[in-house]
Design a protein around this nucleic acid. Structure first.
Lengths: 334, 334
DNA sequence: GCCGGTCGTCGAAGCGCTTCGACAGTCTCT
DNA sequence: AGAGACTGTCGAAGCGCTTCGACGACCGGC
């Protein structure tokens, strides 16, 4: 049970070298002869030595821990969140760092606490709001941070997200390849556009740009999230655009309703209407029929966020904004 | 930006006391006069002092961090997981601890590492398998741990979970009271049974035990999570068991699909088929119709796990096994 | 054969905190 | 009034590690 932990000085004694030599073997910050290194490493594994994290943090001013701030509140699509978290942990481990989990409900206090107490070296925040209270705090913090998502004023911050402009365009392109000539985008609820929320607008712009590039007809509409509103929107859409044969849905909550409405209106998917969604993979897969979709690359975003934050820790310059290319998965709805 | 952090000795100087006095004000381990305490606290907030976590861990042999080991892999219903995680973080904060997130894919190595390096004081593990490789390690570890879920041989461990055996039985009992004579259990995806994960098996055992106790006919089936698979399963079930009038669903991801499939197959709930779910409350409430359900008390389990692990840290004795009684909420589906 | 330059290693000085023993003062019994 | 028990505070000794400066040993160039 409670064997007292092995310390670096016991390793040094066992290997017949100075404490500092053991330290240098471990950190590689000074050259050590191959022979000495071998002896030290042998002693380390013979004794089962693990450096004491606290002592290391105290002496080196690095805890080798990064904070991950998750929303954990209603309205987020949780499975995606989890995949982000998982990706961040895995990526952090690759840089020999661990991950401290903070929930957003502790607000700025939690961030301030873990940063000020040197518990963490850096922070990764998820689900940043347009006007996020934490953003000013991050700006004045000594510890580097990376945001997943974009606030309204990202100046001075490092942000990473899916390239929604390209995602909108990619959907159009896919439908164009399939020979569709008139397509519509059903987006976020109108309130989201009114707020000029980044990702919704960016998708629409990408959609429209691609439309004119491919010489297609089309229309972009906001889309509410109750079944009745969705039904009306879809019905009117079909009446107003009899030539319509392709649909891009960028509204996770409405996807199911859209499919149900189409079914109810006697349109088969994909025979009468091709549907492409921009949504998490599992939503697309579970829909009936499974939807061709641009997936939200959680793993890649998480990995990239960690890479950026590590670069900042090492003092390397990083781009303010990193946009990840969309990936389209073809399923049975197109 | 990078103002050097305030240390305890600066606080001491500012307040005109010894360093140790500041420490005792913070820890309360010795009596301090009200007047001195006030002066020290004033200096602390005036200077914005935060104790250095590493230094504290080094000197006190306590990091005030607990590890949370999450599965993050297929077959688990992720939102529930998230609620566990959230509950653990919140509860840990209440004991002035933070939470380090480990993923199960690092296996025993990660656990060994964070324990040996004194990064964490204790561990909470989720989704323990019946024959979990990590269990022997936990037994020999000096750091206390608590499992959410039960392995096959829980001797010497501290485990907490919903009493799934009782939950399965409770559902049968409820349906028996309502006069149903042939009922089925739709459980987790088969991969979960193959892994022999405790909770799925225990629910089934409880279901079957109650079945024979009440002299009912019935069958227990695994249940996948896409609509098409669920539809097939339900359709076959109805064909094979024409007398079936009650259904227990223990699979959050599938409940919606089960209801949709029943509707599509012309069975009304509850008139033609009574349905009881074992799932988080919000899932049951949002279903249409709202489902009678045994709720999964994620918050309570997480909180309890943290309480237990803190008790162990303080050297207090704790029960080996904590089973939370199932609570059945009657809604309109039975 | 001597000088300057690496190379490999060591010793010691912290890093910021907790905790132990010591010790003046105060209070409470006799 | 004096012994004994508290109270409140201090100083100093670590906790286990990193890192800096120092210093022999060895190298090649002249």
């Amino acid at each position: 049970m409670s064997r007292r932990a092995v310390t670096i000085s016991e390793v040094a004694k066992h290997a017949g070298v100075a404490v500092s030599t053991v330290s240098y073997v471990l950190s590689g910050k000074r050259t050590i002869s191959a022979d000495t290194r071998r002896r030290v490493l042998a002693s380390i594994s013979a004794l089962g030595y693990h450096p004491h994290a606290g002592a290391r943090a105290l002496a080196s001013k690095r805890s080798n821990v990064i904070a991950l701030v998750l929303p954990l509140r209603a309205g987020m699509h949780v499975p995606v969140l989890m995949r982000f978290a998982s990706a961040v942990v895995t990526a952090a481990r690759r840089f020999d760092h661990d991950v401290l989990l903070l929930t957003a409900d502790e607000g700025t206090a939690g961030i301030r606490r873990v940063a000020a107490s040197a518990l963490v070296d850096a922070l990764v925040l998820m689900d940043v709001e347009l006007d996020d209270r934490r953003v000013p705090l991050l700006r004045e913090l000594a510890e580097p941070s990376v945001l997943i998502g974009f606030p309204a004023h990202p100046a001075g911050l490092t942000c990473v997200d899916l390239d929604f402009h390209a995602a909108g365009a990619r959907c159009v392109e896919h439908l164009a390849e399939r020979g569709h000539e008139e397509i519509a985008l059903l987006g976020a609820p109108s309130v989201v556009y009114d707020r000029a929320t980044g990702f919704a607008t960016r998708t629409r712009d990408g959609f429209e740009a691609a439309l004119s590039e491919h010489g297609l007809k089309g229309v972009a509409l906001p889309c509410e999230e109750t079944f009745d509103e969705v039904y009306e929107t879809v019905r009117d859409l079909l009446l107003d655009h009899p030539g319509l044969s392709g649909l891009v849905v960028h509204n996770e909550a409405a996807v199911g309703h859209v499919l149900a409405a189409l079914r109810q209106l006697g349109r088969r998917v994909p025979q009468d209407m091709a549907v492409v969604a921009i949504c998490p993979d599992d939503v697309a897969e579970r829909a009936s029929p499974p939807l061709t979709s641009v997936l939200i690359p959680a793993e890649e975003v998480g990995r990239e966020a960690v890479r950026l934050v590590m670069d900042k820790l090492e003092g390397r310059a990083v781009p303010d904004s990193t946009l990840l290319a969309p990936l389209l998965a073809v399923r049975s709805s197109t």
